[in-house]
Design a protein around this nucleic acid. Sequence first.
DNA 1: AAAAAAATCGACCGAAAGTCGAAAAAATAC
DNA 2: GTATTTTTTCGACTTTCGGTCGATTTTTTT
Lengths: 204, 204
Amino acid sequence: MKKGEKRRQELLKIAYELFITRGYENTSVDEIIDKAQIAKGTYYYYFPSKEQMLEEVIEMMIDAEAEMARHIMETTIPVPQKIVGIITSLKPLDAEQPIKDALHQPENILMHHKVRKKLIEMAMPLLVEVVEEGIREGIFDCDKIAERVKMLLILSDGTFNEGTFRESDISVFIDISEKLLGAQRGTMGFLADLIDKSEMEEGK
Amino acid sequence: MKKGEKRRQELLKIAYELFITRGYENTSVDEIIDKAQIAKGTYYYYFPSKEQMLEEVIEMMIDAEAEMARHIMETTIPVPQKIVGIITSLKPLDAEQPIKDALHQPENILMHHKVRKKLIEMAMPLLVEVVEEGIREGIFDCDKIAERVKMLLILSDGTFNEGTFRESDISVFIDISEKLLGAQRGTMGFLADLIDKSEMEEGK
DNA sequence: AAAAAAATCGACCGAAAGTCGAAAAAATAC
DNA sequence: GTATTTTTTCGACTTTCGGTCGATTTTTTT
């Protein structure tokens, strides 16, 4: 009477991997049940539809990201670093070791969109807290924190997680982040080095 | 030997209307050929695939928006108003008279995403020009214009064209627009009235 | 051991995109 | 004005895919 939950997790894991490597739309239910060695009926015994399954897969992913983000929050690194840490930990699965691309560059728009939306929802309250921390410390100075955080998230996602990223975007992003939060010039400057470094690793 | 182009346009028009009112995914090729009173084979004589057709429908839409945007550019209204005018004219089809919704609110993500991307590509060079105009006039003061314009577009899209818009976003958006372009405080203030007005019309 | 509940099976269904060879219509050549 | 070639149209057929359903097996409960 709980073998069920194991199956469920097993299927979720298989689907997660297929969705990420080949895309949601390009993964058929048949492929999933093939890999899992089960029949159609069994699959639909656990999930009412493929899309509902996607929803659950995404939830899994968000949970993982959320944990990482919360972990960063609890550290004692400076507030600006926290913010950047949380934001960069939000790259859906891009930065993960083996899997990588094949997800949002080509055409996995549905999945990417859903992930992105939930990711922003999840990260907002955390970032609000961090920004408030920054305000108390005198590093930031602004009102309407939630709105500003939302825009920061929109901006970072649109700038970095889309295919149109250019090296020259960084300095503008830094500039605008500082002004958005009412920080002193240079507060976010360390971001440039960070990105330079990761670009080099990828040999871009 | 050119009846073909007429058919093509006819099909494009039918598809455009169906895509907009019912969504791309929810419109079947069968529905299109039903409305057009043609056979499957004829459809595929003109379009290699449904998705390619979407691409062409989108191009049509973009062209229309582009013309409107260019028209705004040629007027003699103040630069800040031009910018806002262009940006607001970019709402894919939202603001259009009879059609409206049923597009990006529910789940027409693929189409919305493609439109949005092309719209940004199209609008960037125009806005760059306008911002340069503003700089010459001393209204704006900034470097990296292309990058800043891109962010302005990302931000406006993410703020207004997504389902998460809140009244309180406006003032932050105004603030950040001004800072992004190096404008004086208040330069973009008129935006608030604009939005208030359109909200009222819709009875929100 | 019997009964009930949970889990599994796979043939089948319907919708939808896309194919293909043949035929009709139109344009061009002679 | 007829033959030939090109363009356009037709619709039955194929394939893929998400999803259904009643039957069957396995596991749990009593």
